[in-house]
């Protein structure tokens, strides 16, 4: 059904200084999808998310989010950028970081209202960070920061959640907990997660696509070893989802 489609990309090309980063990417994400996009660094994963957000204009092709242009749908997109991009010394509390996610609903010239504060409180509760709301964001651990940024993306009550390398700064012990948090969220929104880390992604997502300039997307739970090899240009693990989550490792 067309109205269940959250993201649609048709033959999208994007360039950086004349070098193609996305080469004819077509993709469809539906309402309750949890899609993992894996691929090597420099394969265009962040660019793809930015195209969906409308931060980067594709040089060719069509992008639509919730049936509209990315700019007009931004209000309904929650975005969790790579953590290392902000200044850890910045004087701001967790609470004010999360409220920032409500900006699109409040608009300029007004301070956040009662409803915004309630939403912020609920979002912090969802990610288990309410006790830390008065702390400076830079003083938290990588995993805690990640949770706060997810809360910031959730306060606008998005219908699509985009996560860029969400586990990069989360220590391995916390990763399971992190993916369980996403499990809970996927009932409420479509989730697209990009990562270069195949193992972390494979167990929890429902669908996997591989991106290295081109997108190898099967829209299924199994992913062929040829596809992974074409993406990474070297032998890699094979992933298959069954009743018990497991990965098949190939010798190399």
């Amino acid at each position: 059904m067309a109205h269940d489609e959250v993201v649609r990309l048709e033959d999208v090309w994007a360039h950086y200084d004349g070098v193609p980063v996305l080469e004819g990417v077509s993709l469809s994400v539906e309402r309750d999808d949890f899609l993992g996009i894996i691929g090597p660094n420099g394969g265009g994963k962040t660019t793809l998310l930015k195209v969906i957000l409308g931060l980067i204009k594709p040089s060719r092709g069509m992008v639509s989010v919730l049936g509209k242009t990315p700019e007009r749908s931004r209000k309904n997109i929650g975005y969790v950028p790579q953590v290392n991009l902000f200044d850890p010394d910045f004087p701001i509390s967790v609470w004010n970081v999360v409220l920032m996610g409500r900006y699109g609903r409040v608009g300029p010239l007004r301070w956040y209202g009662k409803k915004d504060r309630e939403r912020a409180q609920r979002a912090l509760q969802t990610v288990g960070m309410l006790d830390h709301k008065d702390r400076q964001i830079g003083k938290l651990s990588g995993g805690e920061q990640q949770r706060v940024f997810i809360a910031r993306a959730l306060v606008s009550e998005p219908r699509l959640l985009l996560l860029d390398e969400p586990t990069a700064s989360v220590d391995p012990a916390m990763q399971t907990e992190f993916y369980e948090l996403l499990e809970g969220l996927k009932q409420r929104m479509a989730i697209v997660l990009v990562s270069h880390d195949i193992t972390a992604v494979s167990i929890y997502v429902d669908k996997i696509a591989c991106l290295n300039g081109q997108l190898f997307y099967h829209g299924s739970k199994e992913i062929g070893v040829e596809v992974l090899e074409a993406t990474y240009k070297c032998p890699v693990q094979m992933i298959a989802h069954g009743t018990v989550p497991h990965r098949v490792l190939m010798e190399h």
């Binding site: 931060l55 931004r74 970081v97 900006y103 301070w111 956040y112």
Partner: peptide, 19 residues
């Protein structure tokens, strides 16, 4: 514009995505 300048100063890119 306190809230607006705060969003601008902290993270311009995220700011853009929320308008």
């Amino acid at each position: 514009l306190y809230k607006d300048f705060l969003a601008l100063s902290f993270d311009e890119e995220f700011g853009t995505t929320v308008g």
